[in-house]
Design a protein around this nucleic acid. Structure first.
Lengths: 215, 215
DNA sequence: ACTTGTCCTGTCATGCCGTCAGCTTACCGA
DNA sequence: TCGGTAAGCTGACGGCATGACAGGACAAGT
């Protein structure tokens, strides 16, 4: 579909080139974890990768461009989050389990991609459509599934008609994303992971089904 | 407490100096709204304020330092968000109104301070304690009130004992903050403000009381 | 007019940005 | 084995932001 990996000036990247490119991405990823986004400099990434700044610019237009690349990669993996919702039951004990596993999976994913997700979030909040699209791609995989779940429950008359499935699903997912992004913060504040998860699961269950879960 | 405003090199700022300082802060605020945080340069802020970069460095150690100043200011105002919760009823129609007004007030505040809150959020997520503290200051004003509300409902036996008040309140507030920060995003995605608010209010009500609201 | 302390800016060394020409390396067909 | 060709990399450079300093402008009091 997209064809081959290309350098900025149009050459196709060969084996060695791709390796260098990947190394730069890896190093950038590391830097994002260890220092503020604002302070990540091309020269540092290049140095860390054992190459020169000029090489960096051969593969990426700028830091942002490289970040988008990393984010894109992560988004692919994030599409798998759909699994946490689609085809699952929302009634009885199974419903509670669905909630719990959704929360669990979500927090894990966020913890894993912590640094890059921060930047994506910022970009999206600043109105950058490219970042926004990536954020959507990840969240939609869950949001859409949840939206469907609500709609289905509505047709069965189990959920009030005046609930907007999209808004509800979107809000819940936003909550998960936000809490996930500040997991460390919660801990500092004295809320333990162990009590955080069930409460999130409870909220998800309440939001989707409108009822307390049976555990 | 803090006493007078001081320059970086320790002088006390007089009338004129304070005016310049404030102008720099205002211009920085504007710049944060119009361009990505990463691209905000001291020289641009100074130019916009009709002064020189050297002047900027007389009052602030760097961009981040000035941002903290703005954030601190906003946090003071944010403390007033407590009003949205403290002393309000969570039962019957009044409970629904409390939810609605909380959501309304929260979204308004966020929309108003949009740009600076993005940066605070990023700083906090990156683990910077100064930003984290400011974020807490704002959110705590609401979180603590909500926590109290849940505790009270628990003692009355109206809410399950296994709900962690702090975790629940924190999650709800995080949700509000996150949704507020991506309000534009929701719109792009096809969810209208008008349906977003009631759904958030519903979730808040469900989370705090465990019950559907009576409208 | 003179002094004092505040306030601002011109200037400079330093360092990063982003680009280019040109060199090195790898691959391939003859 | 030997060019030929394209990929891959870097030194070097002009440009710009940073951050520090010294000195000039300004206001207020004497």
């Amino acid at each position: 579909m997209t064809g081959q990996v290309r350098t900025v000036d149009g050459r196709v990247a060969g084996r060695r080139g791709q390796a260098t490119r990947q190394k730069l991405l890896d190093c950038l990823s590391e830097m994002l974890s260890s220092s503020p986004y604002r302070d990540v400099k091309v020269i540092d990434v290049a140095r860390k990768a054992g190459t020169s700044p000029a090489t960096f610019y051969q593969y990426f237009p700028d830091v942002e461009g490289a970040v988008l690349e990393i984010a894109e990669e992560m988004a692919k993996e994030g599409a798998g989050l759909t699994e946490l919702v689609s085809g699952r039951s929302w009634v009885g004990k199974a419903g509670w389990q669905t909630s719990e596993e959704l929360v669990e999976g979500f927090l894990d994913f966020w913890r894993k991609h912590d640094a890059i997700l921060r930047v994506v979030d910022l970009g999206a909040a600043e109105g950058d459509k490219r970042f926004y699209k990536i954020r959507m791609k990840i969240l939609n995989s869950v949001t859409n599934s949840l939206t469907e779940a609500v709609k289905e429950l509505q047709t069965k008359g189990k959920v009030d008609k005046d609930v907007s499935p999209a808004a509800m699903a979107g809000s819940l997912v936003a909550m998960l994303a936000s809490v996930a992004g500040h997991q460390k913060g919660f801990q500092t504040w004295g809320v333990k992971q162990a009590e955080l998860k069930p409460n999130l699961a409870l909220l998800v269950h309440l939001g989707i089904t409108g009822k307390k879960p049976t555990k």
